[in-house]
Protein backbone atom coordinates (compact mmCIF):
# COMPACT_ATOMS: atom_id res chain seq x y z
CA UNK A 1 0.00 0.00 0.00
CA UNK A 2 1.46 3.33 -0.90
CA UNK A 3 0.71 6.58 0.78
CA UNK A 4 0.53 9.72 -1.33
CA UNK A 5 2.30 13.02 -0.76
CA UNK A 6 -1.08 14.61 -0.06
CA UNK A 7 -1.92 12.02 2.58
CA UNK A 8 1.45 12.52 4.24
CA UNK A 9 0.75 16.25 4.38
CA UNK A 10 -2.76 15.71 5.73
CA UNK A 11 -1.53 13.37 8.45
CA UNK A 12 1.33 15.72 9.32
CA UNK A 13 -1.15 18.55 9.72
CA UNK A 14 -3.35 16.44 12.00
CA UNK A 15 -0.28 15.63 14.11
CA UNK A 16 0.91 19.26 14.07
CA UNK A 17 4.16 18.33 12.39
CA UNK A 18 5.78 20.07 9.49
CA UNK A 19 7.58 18.06 6.86
CA UNK A 20 10.06 19.95 4.72
CA UNK A 21 9.03 19.94 1.07
CA UNK A 22 12.12 18.02 0.04
CA UNK A 23 11.47 15.35 2.69
CA UNK A 24 7.86 14.52 1.84
CA UNK A 25 8.73 11.91 -0.78
CA UNK A 26 11.18 10.18 1.52
CA UNK A 27 8.69 10.12 4.42
CA UNK A 28 5.98 8.86 2.07
CA UNK A 29 8.26 6.07 0.91
CA UNK A 30 9.20 5.08 4.46
CA UNK A 31 5.61 5.06 5.64
CA UNK A 32 4.54 3.11 2.55
CA UNK A 33 7.20 0.50 3.29
CA UNK A 34 5.98 0.12 6.86
CA UNK A 35 2.36 -0.04 5.70
CA UNK A 36 3.24 -2.75 3.18
CA UNK A 37 4.74 -4.69 6.01
CA UNK A 38 1.78 -4.27 8.37
CA UNK A 39 -0.48 -5.47 5.58
CA UNK A 40 0.58 -8.98 6.68
CA UNK A 41 -2.27 -8.60 9.16
CA UNK A 42 -4.73 -8.75 6.27
CA UNK A 43 -3.94 -12.41 5.75
CA UNK A 44 -5.04 -13.35 9.27
CA UNK A 45 -8.44 -14.71 10.09
CA UNK A 46 -9.43 -12.63 13.10
CA UNK A 47 -13.15 -13.23 12.94
CA UNK A 48 -13.50 -14.51 16.49
CA UNK A 49 -10.89 -12.23 18.05
CA UNK A 50 -12.24 -9.36 20.12
CA UNK A 51 -9.89 -6.40 20.45
CA UNK A 52 -7.56 -6.81 23.40
CA UNK A 53 -7.88 -4.88 26.64
CA UNK A 54 -5.99 -5.71 29.82
CA UNK A 55 -7.05 -3.31 32.50
CA UNK A 56 -9.03 -5.08 35.22
CA UNK A 57 -12.70 -4.45 34.54
CA UNK A 58 -13.51 -4.89 38.22
CA UNK A 59 -11.22 -2.02 39.22
CA UNK A 60 -12.95 0.10 41.84
CA UNK A 61 -13.67 3.68 40.83
CA UNK A 62 -12.15 6.59 42.73
CA UNK A 63 -14.05 7.92 45.73
CA UNK A 64 -15.13 11.54 45.23
CA UNK A 65 -12.76 12.87 47.87
CA UNK A 66 -10.27 15.72 47.32
CA UNK A 67 -6.63 14.72 47.05
CA UNK A 68 -4.74 17.71 48.39
CA UNK A 69 -1.44 15.81 48.22
CA UNK A 70 -1.24 16.15 44.47
CA UNK A 71 -2.54 19.70 44.12
CA UNK A 72 0.04 21.92 42.44
CA UNK A 73 -1.40 25.43 42.69
CA UNK A 74 -0.52 28.32 40.34
CA UNK A 75 3.19 28.55 41.06
CA UNK A 76 4.13 24.91 40.67
CA UNK A 77 1.65 24.41 37.82
CA UNK A 78 3.39 27.08 35.75
CA UNK A 79 6.96 26.54 36.99
CA UNK A 80 8.03 24.62 33.88
CA UNK A 81 6.13 26.79 31.40
CA UNK A 82 8.01 28.57 28.61
CA UNK A 83 5.90 31.66 29.41
CA UNK A 84 3.68 32.34 32.40
CA UNK A 85 2.42 35.30 34.38
CA UNK A 86 0.42 35.53 37.61
CA UNK A 87 -0.38 31.84 37.49
CA UNK A 88 -1.56 31.90 33.88
CA UNK A 89 0.13 30.16 30.99
CA UNK A 90 0.87 32.58 28.16
CA UNK A 91 0.77 31.45 24.54
CA UNK A 92 0.82 33.16 21.16
CA UNK A 93 -2.67 34.43 20.29
CA UNK A 94 -5.35 31.80 19.91
CA UNK A 95 -7.05 32.66 16.66
CA UNK A 96 -9.68 29.94 16.34
CA UNK A 97 -11.39 30.90 19.55
CA UNK A 98 -13.89 28.16 20.26
CA UNK A 99 -13.09 24.66 21.35
CA UNK A 100 -14.66 22.36 18.76
Amino acid sequence: MSISREEVQRVAELARLEIAADAVDRVAAQLSGILDFVATLDALDLGDCEPTAFAPAAAPLRADVPDESRRLGPERATAAAPAAEEGYFLVPPIVENVNP
Binding site: L61, R62, A63, D67, R71, L72, G73, A77, G87, Y88
Partner: peptide
Protein backbone atom coordinates in the same frame (compact mmCIF):
# COMPACT_ATOMS: atom_id res chain seq x y z
CA UNK B 1 -8.82 14.46 43.12
CA UNK B 2 -8.68 18.21 42.40
CA UNK B 3 -11.65 20.09 43.80
CA UNK B 4 -14.30 21.49 41.51
CA UNK B 5 -14.64 25.07 42.72
CA UNK B 6 -15.22 28.45 41.16
CA UNK B 7 -13.53 31.72 41.83
CA UNK B 8 -10.11 30.37 42.76
CA UNK B 9 -6.92 31.99 41.40
CA UNK B 10 -5.75 30.68 38.03
CA UNK B 11 -4.45 27.10 38.10
CA UNK B 12 -5.21 26.74 41.81
CA UNK B 13 -6.98 23.41 41.47
CA UNK B 14 -4.55 21.62 39.23
CA UNK B 15 -2.51 18.46 39.57
CA UNK B 16 -0.38 16.35 37.21
CA UNK B 17 -3.50 14.62 35.89
CA UNK B 18 -5.73 17.56 34.96
CA UNK B 19 -2.73 19.57 33.78
CA UNK B 20 -1.80 16.76 31.40
CA UNK B 21 1.74 16.40 32.74
CA UNK B 22 3.88 13.63 31.27
CA UNK B 23 3.34 10.33 33.08
CA UNK B 24 0.03 11.23 34.75
CA UNK B 25 -2.90 8.81 34.51
CA UNK B 26 -6.65 9.20 34.99
CA UNK B 27 -8.88 7.49 37.51
CA UNK B 28 -12.65 7.73 37.22
CA UNK B 29 -14.74 9.56 39.83
CA UNK B 30 -17.41 7.19 41.17
Amino acid sequence: GCEVEFGRPANWNTCPVCLGLPGALPRTNI
